[in-house]
Design a protein around this nucleic acid. Structure first.
Lengths: 144, 144
DNA sequence: GTCGCCCCTCCATCTCAGTTGACGAAGGCA
DNA sequence: TGCCTTCGTCAACTGAGATGGAGGGGCGAC
């Protein structure tokens, strides 16, 4: 990770380095280009693959992203910003935690209420927690 | 799933339909475009968003994909993987609701409460909705 | 040697992703 | 009523994404 490891170029480079034909050297740009085309994917030029790997081009279209990801056997999400994706995935994880509770319903219906009403409801929730003897974490949050 | 549900246009359309400002109608193309730009994202034109939704353009670049996904609070994989799309669609409304910090807070804290308490809170939420003139249940969506 | 082949690199070119600007319809306000 | 704003829609333009082909180095065969 000498350069910024988050860049698209770094990821493409990593794919070339790691996923190899059978055991020998790396795939050549031309091989990849031809394989993608033959697999029914969009046309992609060897030169362009080189540009992506070197970082000269870093904003490919959806179809090319799909094609390259498909060839190397990784999900297209692989190429996207990790921090942002993780943040959203974390939210999704939270949702599954709330899966079968009526909590879902409450959240859905609370959406759109005024700030003051939300505050009141939050207070009520907090009070009920207290009454039911649930943990009252006064520690706001542990630093990241 | 009237049209082909797997297309990018269908997905973008679905996002516009489901994730709404606070309660009212859909986001306008211009609102989304401006919000993306203001969030430090790439420049994107309202017209282009319209084209994506209508299916006139369906091959956006990585950066624009990221921007749109980011705005609607879904991972970029939403636009690629159909399985992922379904998974997220199932929870989109909730995901949207939880974007509001206070609502999220309530959901988190309500988690673990007894069934009876949750019921009481749900009732209270419903009553407040009524008082604030927000749409009541029973109408999933009014057909045109 | 030198010919042929494959690969990476570079540059000129073209295509299409993305923007700009304009138009009509549908409200809000005086 | 008329003006002004906001919105979705459309057509034409601009420029970045993507391509094709040429140059150049390495390696084996003849």
């Amino acid at each position: 990770m000498s350069e910024d490891a988050g860049t698209l170029a770094a990821k493409v480079d990593h794919l070339f380095r790691t996923v190899r034909p059978h055991d020998g050297g790396e795939y050549s740009f031309d091989e990849v280009a031809r394989a993608i085309r033959d697999k029914g994917g969009p046309t992609i030029s060897a030169t362009y693959l080189w540009q992506l790997r070197k970082g000269i081009r870093d904003n490919p279209t959806k179809r090319h992203l799909e094609a390259v990801a498909g060839f190397f056997g990784v999900p297209p999400a692989y190429f996207f910003d990790d921090a942002e994706t993780e943040r959203i995935d974390a939210q999704l994880a939270l949702l599954t935690a709330l899966r079968d509770a009526p909590v879902r319903q409450i959240a859905l219906r609370a959406n759109g209420l005024s700030a003051r009403s939300l505050e009141a409801i939050a207070d009520m929730v907090e009070r009920v927690r207290e009454l039911e003897g649930l943990p009252q974490p006064e520690s706001p949050d542990p630093p990241p």
